[in-house]
Amino acid sequence: KEFRPGDKVVLPPYGVGVVAGIAQRSVSGVSRAYYQVDFPGSRSKAYVPVEAPHSVGLRKAL
C-alpha cells in the first residue's frame, strides 16, 4: 500500500489530512477498499480509492 495509517497527506480541495486507515465501502453493490482520510480540527472525512489515489490528487504532505 502506498499510504499507511498516520501518514500526513494533501487532498485537494480539502487540504492537509491524516490517513486513518483502510475501509471497505460498497458503491453500486461493489465492495472496494478506500483510504479514510481525517482532517484535524474538523469532523470531515474523505474516502479515496486505494487502487487509484492519485486520480483524485491524494499525495503525501511535505
Rank of each mutant, 00 (worst) to 15 (best):
R32K: 13
P5C: 12
L11P: 08
P12N: 05
G57S: 04
S44A: 14
K45V: 15
P49S: 08
Y35F: 07
K45L: 09
F39K: 00
K60M: 12
Y35G: 01
V37L: 05
P49I: 05
F39A: 00
R32P: 02
V18T: 08
Q36E: 14
A20F: 10
E2H: 09
G21D: 04
S55D: 10
E51Q: 06
G15E: 00
D7Y: 03
Q36Y: 07
A52E: 09
Q24T: 13
V19G: 00
L62C: 14
Y34M: 04
S44E: 13
G29P: 00
A23G: 05
L58T: 03
I22P: 00
V37Q: 01
R43V: 12
V27W: 10
K60A: 12
L62D: 14
D38G: 06
G21S: 08
I22E: 02
G29N: 04
A33S: 12
A20P: 00
A23I: 15
G41K: 10
R25I: 14
V19I: 15
A20V: 14
A23F: 14
R59I: 10
V16K: 06
Q36G: 01
V16H: 11
A20I: 13
E51H: 07
R4K: 13
G17P: 00
V50C: 07
P40F: 12
V16R: 08
V9W: 02
D7P: 01
P5W: 04
F3E: 01
V10W: 14
S26P: 08
G6S: 01
G41Q: 11
K1G: 13
G57W: 05
L11D: 01
G29A: 02
Y34T: 01
Q24H: 13
V18C: 09
P12S: 06
Y47L: 05
P40C: 13
V37S: 01
V27S: 06
F39N: 00
R4D: 03
E51A: 07
K8R: 12
R4V: 09
E2C: 13
I22K: 03
S31H: 08
P40L: 10
P53L: 06
E51D: 13
V30M: 07
Y14C: 09
Y34Q: 00
P12D: 07
Y35K: 01
A61T: 07
G17E: 00
R43L: 12
V56P: 04
K8W: 15
H54Y: 10
A23C: 15
S26I: 14
G15V: 02
V18E: 04
K1V: 15
G17D: 01
S28G: 14
R59L: 09
A61I: 15
I22N: 01
S31C: 13
K1H: 15
L58M: 14
R59C: 10
D7R: 02
L62Q: 12
V18Y: 12
V19R: 00
V56T: 08
V16Q: 11
A46Q: 11
S31W: 14
R25V: 13
S44F: 15
V18H: 05
K1P: 15
R43N: 15
A46G: 04
V48E: 00
A23D: 05
P40M: 08
L62R: 07
L62N: 13
L62F: 12
A23L: 15
H54C: 11
K45D: 03
S42C: 11
R4T: 07
G15T: 01
Q36V: 15
Y47M: 04
F3P: 03
H54R: 07
V50N: 00
V18M: 06
G41H: 13
A52P: 04
Y34C: 06
A23W: 12
R43I: 11
Y14T: 01
Q24N: 12
P12C: 13
R43Y: 11
F39I: 03
S55P: 05
A61N: 06
V16I: 13
S44N: 13
F3S: 00
P5S: 07
K45S: 15
E2W: 11
A33K: 10
V16M: 11
P53S: 13
A52S: 11
V9I: 06
P49A: 06
S42P: 06
V50L: 05
P13I: 05
K8G: 03
G29T: 02
A46R: 11
S55K: 12
D7S: 05
R32C: 08
S44D: 11
H54N: 10
V18W: 12
R32D: 03
G15C: 12
R43H: 13
Q36L: 12
I22Q: 03
P12W: 13
A23Q: 11
